[in-house]
Write a protein that binds this DNA or RNA. Structure first.
Ligand SMILES: Nc1nc2c(ncn2[C@H]2C[C@H](O)[C@@H](COP(=O)(O)OP(=O)(O)OP(=O)(O)O)O2)c(=O)[nH]1
Ligand SMILES: [Mg+2]
Ligand SMILES: [Mg+2]
Ligand SMILES: [Zn+2]
Length: 567
DNA sequence: GCCGTTTTCGGCCCGACTGTTTTCAGTCG
């Protein structure tokens, strides 16, 4: 069982306990444990195999009880508490609480009335059965119907590029309002999380009512969920929800910190405030008399606690406070550090543009080099090149490199790793390439052991320099193949192969927590776009975000180096 | 259920919006 599956056990236990109106702090404890398990870069199974229950209990947020449940799952394949809870609730009941605006209290009430599925709820609401319940009324009943519709129409989480694009559009609209003095997109988007649930936009203004009135009337707004004088929530026409928060200038720092999150990070800084005899809210840092003593700038939110500034991408409760207190935060890699793109395609295979077009676009980004890396023969669906076609393609790349000044065009290929771990071309072809990058495009459904061996075998070829999109996952479409990164990463280190952070918003592969692990193991990383067209070269920023979330610095990233120092 | 440079017991972040209330509960950020 992988860590995400372990985490899911505890997310579910938390959910069930909430629906039983159990102790809220116990529920929070389960959620904290789930969150921390998702942040681990080593598998619980492996931690357990190496250090037993004791090692498991050293994980933050995991104590004797949750530790025992992990042990039970490993030993017996189930957690009896969860099995029991599942029996207490009818199938489909959990879905009720996923309706926006309908929480655990209401769900519990509905259960008593035997309304325990979405269909039954809809029927009850439509026939006016809910309005007479205690604490209910006609409006609440209508809101439940609206919530049902919202859930049906819900798009789920959004990829980073679509969320970013809509944030930019929304910011453009808000910039037209003279009452808006500052506008800052916050939330998971600012933290560079791989998917985004909603936009969280902060505005500074002394005229919050005017901002709110104009905000909810914007053409891009489809539905208004709530509207107050400091906070409003809407759904945009593309289905993306957006929250707007308006504060005074003097609260800008505290509010941007609050609204950027993460929630767990926020709670921690509020606990630090408590220890110092202060209080932190989105309005500032306050002393016991209630006077504001800080929080006008975001930097001050850290400085007041003797912490170095923690960049948004690190605010995930993954050790950032300890590092900031000791002055040991990494100096994170930046987009402007990137000197080239080492994974791109042309119309020789499944790309849209020519070598020259890709090169010109790369020059416009200020790059020093690119690697043309088209597909190889086994990847037929992508127009993979036969040996002779590749040799001809090579000549074209070399010719383009001669022709185009101010950019080094390196000749490479994204060589398929065959099921037995051998490569799609013999070494006599690979020898002629400047840089060989490799990846898996077929036979995804191998057992973990075999897949791991397949990859390690490929990486052991001394001509191989980069392993691309190492897990093969496509966000929202398919899980990655089963692979033991605890073996692949050390192999990459041993054979001096760099691991790719694929910057495509649907891949973002390797993920942040494994980037951190790779760094620990001394593995070099490279950030590449896998661009299939000139405009996709600009996806680099999303890969940089992943690297930053993985605590990586310029020196950890191969393509921040000059071309002569590459690999 | 977790956790401890004041604690191994008694805390656990703080505030906005809505609908139903006549002072607050529920839900959410
Ligand atoms: N202090 C505190 N802050 C919270 C809480 N819930 C949310 N926040 C803050 C931190 C979040 O990053 C920010 C925006 O909330 P969201 O629900 O939109 O979460 P976020 O953007 O992190 O993730 P998302 O991708 O939208 O699911 O508000 C909370 O319970 N307490
Ligand atoms: Mg959000
Ligand atoms: Mg939000
Ligand atoms: Zn590719």
């Amino acid at each position: 069982m992988n860590n995400l599956e372990f985490a899911k056990i505890f997310w579910q236990i938390a959910e069930f306990l909430e629906l039983k109106a159990d102790n809220p702090f116990k529920i929070r404890a389960y959620r904290a444990a789930a969150q921390n398990i998702e942040s681990l870069s080593k598998s619980l199974e492996e931690i357990y195999a190496q250090g037993g229950l004791k090692a498991i209990e050293e994980i933050p947020g995991i104590g004797t009880h949750i530790g025992q449940k992990i042990e039970e799952q490993i030993k017996t394949g189930k957690v009896s508490v969860l099995t029991q809870l599942r029996k207490e609730f009818p199938q489909g009941f959990l879905e009720l609480a996923s309706i926006p605006g309908l929480g655990p209290k209401t769900a519990l009430l509905l259960k008593k009335l035997k309304i325990d599925s979405l269909a039954k709820l809809e029927k009850a609401a439509k026939s006016g059965q809910l309005r007479d319940l205690p604490g209910f009324g006609a409006k609440k009943e209508k809101n439940i119907l609206r919530g049902l519709n919202l859930k049906k129409a819900s798009h789920g989480r959004f990829l980073l590029d679509e969320a970013s694009a809509h944030a930019e559009l929304l910011v453009e609209e808000l910039e037209k309002l003279p009452e808006a003095k500052k506008i800052l997109p916050c939330g998971s988007l600012r933290r560079g999380q791989e998917t985004v649930g909603d936009l969280d936009i902060l505005v500074v203004s002394d005229k919050p009512n005017i901002i709110m009135d104009k905000f909810v009337k914007l053409a891009m707004v489809k539905d208004i969920l709530a509207k107050g004088e400091t906070k409003s929530s809407v759904i945009l026409k593309n289905g993306l929800p957006a929250d707007l928060r308006v504060v005074n200038e003097k609260s800008f720092g505290a509010a941007s910190h609050y609204f950027t999150g993460s929630k767990a990070h926020n709670i921690h800084i509020r606990q630090l405030a408590h220890q110092a005899g202060w209080k932190v809210s989105e309005y500032g840092i306050f002393n016991q008399k209630g006077q504001q003593i800080g929080g006008q700038t975001e930097a001050d939110m850290f400085a007041k606690f003797r912490l170095d500034y923690i960049p948004p991408e690190l605010r995930e409760m993954r050790g950032e406070f300890e590092a900031a207190a000791k002055g040991q935060l990494p100096k994170l890699v930046e987009l402007s550090d990137i000197k080239g793109d080492l994974h791109l395609h042309t119309k020789a295979t499944d790309g849209l543009n020519s070598i020259e077009e890709m090169a010109e676009a790369a020059k416009k980004l200020g790059y020093e080099y690119i690697l043309i890396s088209d597909h190889t023969q086994s990847t037929r669906v992508a127009g993979g090149l036969s040996e002779s076609e590749m040799l001809a393609h090579l000549k074209k790349i070399k010719a383009a490199n001669k022709k185009i000044k101010g950019l080094e065009i390196l000749a490479g290929a994204e060589v398929d790793i065959l099921p037995d771990g051998s490569l799609d071309y013999p070494n006599k072809i690979l020898n002629q390439l400047d840089i060989v990058i490799v990846s898996i495009h077929s036979n995804f459904k191998m057992p973990k052991e075999k897949m791991t061996q397949r990859i390690v075998t490929a990486l052991s070829n001394p001509l191989v320099k980069i392993f691309c999109h190492p897990t093969g996952r496509l966000i929202g479409q398919r899980e990655g193949y089963e692979v033991d990164l605890e073996k692949v990463l050390p192999a990459a280190q041993k054979y001096n192969v760099a691991i790719e952070i694929n910057a495509h918003p649907q891949r973002l592969d390797l993920t942040d927590v494994y980037c951190q692990r790779a760094k620990e193991l001394g593995v070099k990383m490279v950030i590449s776009t896998d661009a299939h067209s000139t405009d996709q070269l600009e996806l680099m920023k999303y890969g940089v975000m992943v690297a930053r979330r993985g605590w990586l610095e310029k020196k950890d990233i191969v393509n921040t180096q000059a071309v002569r120092d590459l690999l």
